[in-house]
Design a protein around this nucleic acid. Structure first.
Lengths: 226, 226
DNA sequence: TTATGAGCGTGACCGGGGTCACCTTTCCGG
DNA sequence: CCGGAAAGGTGACCCCGGTCACGCTCATAA
């Protein structure tokens, strides 16, 4: 049981540098919980003192306005982690995290994690790398929100997703609603833009999968132009 | 000369944990350059292998669209640093940095900085803390862009700025143009909104200084409501 | 099978805010 | 102290995209 947890942790980029025995002793310090689809794993403004690693399922990181509108800051899949910010700077959690599907999470308490980071420079460095990546993405997103119109933002999102999947197929358990919340737009506008893209032959959509048929077109659409 | 550099570095949060002698030997590895107002310190997509610390003046971190529109991701003053992302993840620079006024910068080369980080856990931790802070801000900004209208975003910006200055005065070498680029709006709209705020008695503006007269009103304006 | 609810497609409407055009005021360098 | 540039104010216009209101299409459960 715990040995498989250790195995799993070894596949997580953050801990990839750790050796077998380190992983095993580290896995000992771990709790594991599962959350049904839709449940809130973590509330904005909670004090927050643990790090979560997604072992199965997917979760979304969201901001929620008083009026109920949701902004999706990110979607995390297996092997990705969240909750490190509060753990690093001891500030309250900055967003909600909600299970998009039934999800299994590995939970590490602050002190254990902190010790791990402080004692292994390579783990610290991986963490720095990960935060850098996120910061770049966030800045990109800000740029996109200001400089691009809705179709442009969608194009950029699709390119991003296909990049992280490696192919130009996107496994779409992505509803238009979800896309809309990821790029700051309304569901209706996303619908219309996606139809545009299909009609132009830039993408094709078969049940649960989006294929990028004309990458260059999308790339250029994702560009700011006058 | 270099001793004052060492002194200065000691006041920078990132290096605050270093001792006197460490600072001095560290300062040896440093170059120093000054940039006239308006000059580009660093281009997006440059390979980038140095860290910069602002010793005097102010710089802005900006994205620039093909059409020339600028988005200001941040304004950095004395004691703040930039360029660490490329150092950490070896990716190209993600934005331009431009001197808003004549500025003096201390420059550290990658290897020296990296060694410093790897050899002092406290420096690594400060860096993590700083990146966390920025990530939170970036996420906040994304939320604001999606959920708030222009006056709301301005209110939030003003509150932010006053917070980091400690008082409810903001030394404004901030033009409306600059504000506009920080919140993703046009100069004209900012003008109108600022006038609104003054007419409502929420802020008052005397030559180069903005005072927040009615904090609560601004706070509520900076809130998403239905 | 049918019911039921989530997801999608589309038209009508309209408002926030961008753009353009111009004017006035403030700021500085010489 | 003056002349030009930068900053700020304001009106007119109009378009992107949000909102509302339906209708349609699938999935899954009973």
């Amino acid at each position: 049981m715990n040995t498989t947890t250790a195995d799993f942790l070894g596949t997580v980029p953050l801990f990839r540098s750790l050796g077998r025995s380190e992983l095993e002793s580290f896995a000992e310090l771990t709790r594991e919980r599962s959350y049904p689809r839709g449940s809130v794993i973590l509330f904005e403004n909670d004090p927050g003192d643990s790090l979560f690693v997604v072992r199965s399922g997917r979760v979304k990181v969201v901001l929620i306005g008083e009026d109920g509108r949701e902004v999706i800051l990110g979607v995390l899949g297996v092997g990705q982690h969240f909750g490190e910010l509060s753990l690093i700077d001891e500030q309250p959690r900055s967003a909600h995290v909600i299970a998009m599907e039934d999800a299994g999470l590995i939970i590490l308490r602050r002190d254990d994690f902190r010790r791990r980071v402080e004692s292994s420079p390579t783990v610290a460095w991986s963490l720095l790398t990960e935060l850098s990546r996120r910061l770049r993405r966030a800045d990109d997103k800000i740029g996109g929100l200001v400089l691009l119109d809705v179709p442009g933002r969608i194009a950029r999102l699709l390119l991003d997703l296909s990049e992280e999947s490696g192919t130009d197929q996107i496994e779409k358990s992505l509803t238009h609603q979800t896309i809309a919340q990821m790029i700051g737009a309304s569901r209706e506008t996303v619908s219309r833009a996606m139809k545009e893209f299909q009609d132009s032959g830039w993408i094709s959509v078969e049940r649960r999968r989006i294929s990028l048929a004309d990458r260059p077109a999308l790339v250029s659409r994702a560009q700011v132009r006058e």
